[in-house]
């Protein structure tokens, strides 16, 4: 395989534009997934009979091939970025939902009860106690979901919103490996960067974990 380095230098602007386009699809997809997963997870956590159902549905949605899902969404949302975002959101749910439920499960019953016993309401306890304590597990899910989404965005190039994935179709049609390799590397770097950002965010949000054990 020969890499044409010249192509890279003449296309830096394109690469940057595609990367931004990639993020414009991936970031909203994960955020939307989180917005949907959090309340659903609370329901699944509190109402035992619904847990299996909700997790089961998200598992089945996960098995639908991504390309097919985009195509099936076309009649509803058309050839828009919304289609790409909606499709990717569906895939984030499987991870986000499972991790959020597990995170809420991991909150010690005693701590939750102490909060209620001190006169904090159910919602207050959820927001002030349960979510913060579940945060490490939820964030682990957000990290996996983000990495997964960033790698999946390229499938949406079929409907024109694949970001970096555009390079794969391009290279495939022209039998030109350079942009394909650039695309793979770029996707990996983007996933890595996103993961690093999330690690820092989590670190900032959980000061109690940073402090060592008893001094």
């Amino acid at each position: 395989m020969t890499i044409e380095w010249g192509w890279l230098t003449t296309h830096t602007d394109d690469l940057l534009a595609l990367t931004l386009d990639h993020l414009a699809t991936a970031v909203p997809a994960v955020l939307l997934g989180l917005l949907i997963a959090l309340p659903l997870a609370v329901v699944a956590h509190r109402v035992r009979p619904l847990r299996g159902l909700l997790l089961g549905i998200s598992n089945i949605m996960f098995t639908v091939p991504s390309l097919a899902l985009f195509v099936l969404l076309l009649p509803i949302t058309g050839l828009t970025r919304t289609t790409a975002i909606a499709g990717l959101t569906v895939y984030t749910l499987v991870v986000l939902l499972r991790n959020t439920v597990e995170g809420l499960d991991s909150v010690p019953a005693k701590v939750r009860e102490a909060s209620l016993a001190m006169g904090r309401g159910s919602l207050g306890t959820l927001v002030k106690v349960e979510f913060p304590l579940a945060l490490p597990v939820i964030m682990a899910g957000v990290r996996v979901a983000s990495v997964m989404t960033i790698s999946l965005v390229s499938v949406a190039s079929y409907i024109g919103y694949g970001g970096i994935g555009q390079l794969f179709t391009d290279g495939f049609q022209r039998s030109f490996p350079t942009p394909v390799l650039a695309g793979v590397v770029l996707t990996l770097l983007l996933a890595l960067a996103a993961d690093a950002v999330l690690v820092v965010v989590q670190w900032l949000c959980t000061p109690w974990i940073r402090k060592g054990a008893r001094a």
């Binding site: 010690p108 005693k110 701590v111 102490a114 909060s115 016993a117 913060p132 304590l133 959980t206």
Partner: peptide, 14 residues
């Protein structure tokens, strides 16, 4: 209006 103390204190770890 009622104080409540439990085993292992049930303190908020965060």
């Amino acid at each position: 209006g009622i104080g409540y103390v439990i085993q292992q204190a049930g303190l908020f770890p965060h």
